[in-house]
Design a binder for these strands. Structure first.
Lengths: 331, 331
DNA sequence: CTGTTAGCGCTTTCAT
DNA sequence: ATGAAAGCGCTAACAG
């Protein structure tokens, strides 16, 4: 390992280690001649400051911890990109990791981030209320939640208006010709709950009951649901509308429908939620509720930096408006 | 911030801080009674060890730095997933960041990782030979390169056999009916060079010159190239085969072709490279050269852990075999 | 402007 | 089994 320390270069330069330390932290406090000599030596000797030591001694680490729910999900990746973008312009590094939707993992990750003294944390929580969030508050570290609306009014967050999004979907679906409407939901996440609430608020219940399938979480789950839809709901003969609260799953469903040559949208209309990038590129471009995902990351990052700068500023609470995007998967 | 230190809990427990430290690092060396008391106190007082201090004092950080070229690219995300998977089972954390294909950023990121004393580094380098790699060697930190074949024989890597992949594509394309073949390449990355070499090795040159477009790097670039292909190469009337050395770009090209109602594969056949997940889900499933991307991450991570355990073991050098996948974008 | 000194929180001999 | 003390590399008063 790199064993060069400020002490080594101090000796080489014939100065004290304080001086060397100063050229690192307050260069202007050092005589330009010695400063240059020291800098030169640093370069020559391949000196790399030990961030652990700096951190221990009190310097902010300029590291921001980011915890998302899934890595292989464009939704979260786009958030991370937004975050990364902002952080970089401000010379912060991002430390990205995934909870994989498991609370305990989330807790451990956050704990580890605190333990490694990141200057702030961005979290897309599994639940809006959890030990993780209590930990964050208790630790007194600046943090902003993403894709989640916490009950605690003191907590900063950036989320999308999922109730509104559900309503948009309902209005659109009300306007469609159909014999049945089927709702398909996945992870029991707050955002999903809100979407469903908004949907039920506005959907036209007079057109018969709305069937619901729960726990359909992944692309594969969606794919596997299709045979059930066929046998239980006869979607191949009754003109059906599927509202699937997650694009990723919707893609899986469509994939299987296409494989079985069931015409979309003539026989089955599909409406998703999220507007991930894939939704416009997939086999049959997907009608969906769009969230400006990247903005979510960007705003969250900016607010976090703000929070770090002025810790007692009021909590930042952002609710981004969704938009409805009609594509060819529905009619 | 969390101000509870071992000293605090030592006082509370009426023992010395050494003892507390021991229950952290060598629990078995402590009387089980005191140990339990201390552990209980830690829980009660919400104690979180300071990883910086631990690291400074010599304990490995159990952090692995991972640097990829792009975040919003399933190719690299899948690598990261593979890595994450392995690391987690071994109780290591991953610190993920993106160089965005810029060498300087890559260098800075690696430097910062070393500076924060990660135990090892996984890097998908921009170039097979660079200051970054020299830095890594010099620092003496265990590392494995991904998606790259370094010239230096002492360096461990996991990559795919891109020459072979190019050859596979050429053989397939030789078998296709066509009036012209067009090669489209992007980032001047080693892997791309190898693909092209393999391709030229095997492609049938007797069927006329092969035109080449360079510097087509992103989905958008691919999209924008289509009008040029139309005007310069008249692909709408001459039956054409496009070999695009990157699926992401191929998707962009296809998107625009579809928008212009140019029939794929009847009029234009498209062959990509990478077999990212999208390639099987996109509007017209893409014929492509498949790399077992996730394996690459998994193997790299495993070899890194191995390297960390026995630092003087021989360099690990893996070349994964590609596979050719025919889908509906070509005929 | 520069050197001296005392920590930051934890691990680790070395005694006891 | 436990405590005392030194030290990891760096920063931050405090003197000069």
């Amino acid at each position: 390992m790199n064993k060069v320390t400020i002490m080594d270069i101090a000796k080489a330069a014939g100065v004290s280690k304080s001086t060397v330390s100063r050229v690192l932290s307050r260069p202007d406090m050092v005589n330009s001649k010695t400063r240059n000599r020291v800098l030169e030596l640093m370069k020559q000797m391949d000196y790399i400051p030990n961030q652990l030591a700096q951190g221990l001694a009190g310097t902010p680490t300029r590291n921001i911890g980011v915890v998302i729910d899934e890595l292989s999900n464009f939704f979260f990746i786009e958030i991370a990109e937004g975050v990364d973008w902002v952080l970089n312009t401000q010379n912060y590094s991002m430390q990205l990791s995934s909870s994989r939707w498991v609370e305990e993992r989330e807790f451990l990750l956050v704990r580890s981030l605190i333990s490694s003294r990141v200057d702030g944390i961005l979290l897309a929580p599994v639940l809006p209320e959890s030990p993780t969030i209590r930990l964050l508050k208790h630790a007194g570290i600046p943090f902003v939640l993403m894709n989640c609306i916490p009950e605690d009014e003191e907590i900063s967050y950036v989320s999308c208006d999922n109730v509104k999004g559900g309503e948009l979907a309902a209005h659109y679906i009300n306007s469609l010709e159909k014999e049945q409407t089927i709702l398909i939901t996945g992870f029991e996440h707050q955002s999903m709950g809100d979407r469903v609430d908004g949907f039920y608020n506005c959907v036209d219940h007079s057109k018969g009951d709305i069937k619901r399938y729960r726990g359909v979480k992944t692309f594969e789950d969606g794919y596997d649901l299709v045979p059930i839809l066929l046998s239980r709901d006869e979607i191949e003969r009754k003109k059906s509308v599927l509202f699937i609260t997650n694009d990723n799953v919707a893609l899986g469903v469509m994939e299987h429908l296409v494989a079985l040559s069931i015409p979309i949208p003539e026989q089955v209309s599909v409406v998703g939620y999220d507007n991930i990038r894939l939704s416009s590129l997939c086999r049959i471009p997907l009608t969906t509720v769009s969230q400006s995902i990247r903005d979510m990351g960007r705003i969250a990052a900016m607010e976090l930096l703000d929070l770090m700068a002025s810790p007692d500023s009021k909590p930042k609470r952002h609710l981004l408006a969704p938009e409805f995007v009609v594509r060819s998967s529905s009619v």
